[in-house]
Amino acid sequence: MLTKRIIPCLDMTAGKVVKGIQFINFKNAGDPVVLANKYDTEGADELVFLDITATVENRNILIDVVEKTARQVTIPFSVGGGIRAAADMRLLLKSGADKVSINTGAFKNPKLISNCANAFGNQCVVLSMDVRKTGSQKWNVFINGGNIDTGVSALVWAKQAVIQGAGEILLTSIDNDGTKTGFDVDLTRIISSRVSVPVIASGGAGKLTDFVDILIRGKADAALAASVFHFGEFTIAKVKNYLKKNGIPIRI
């Protein structure tokens, strides 16, 4: 049986792992190579690496940090940040990434998704979207590191991205990010039940029960978290054991 996945996330800026709250007030969380190695050993199902300032600073991702981190991991490694062309994706795959996530670049140019999917297969194109609640049962997509409201509904963009060839969606709630108040279950359930590809829920993990909620009620295929792992609240193993106890298929 296919298991649900628990995914630690390394938000990167200037070669260091950082973690903010609602995309601001970033705190240093350590060295990516050390953390990658630790999470791999603890039983993480995958590792996500996002260069969160590449787009805003209009630069390419730091390839040498990607290479060094990739060498540490025996599990799948997704990398994103500042991807604007299929050539950027080719370089990341060469540097040790297994999947590449695209966010602002894809929103500005949806053809980027199909170009990448045609060249590398849709299973290796992750559409990353940052979403903020803008009304009752209404969520908009934000780009440029969460700075610009596109006015486009999250569900509309998710569906369009899947048609273009995205193989997976990394769905981040900006409102819940770093707050440890739980994932946005409603948002995730709506997106996950309406698209044909796996959805990774992100933003808000704080308690063990939050993981159960998002995987069962939120219908997420995977749960991503950063703060709770970086700052030592839980180990990956603790979360996975708790999920297993609650009857969720998980790899221990």
Binding site: M1, L2, T3, K4, R5, D45, N122, Q123, G167, E168, S196, V197, P198, D221, A222, R251
Partner: peptide, 12 residues
């Protein structure tokens, strides 16, 4: 298409 495609993750 009854399941999510691609299959992504750990399976036995």
């Amino acid at each position: 298409r009854e399941r999510k495609v691609p299959q992504i993750g750990w399976n036995q």
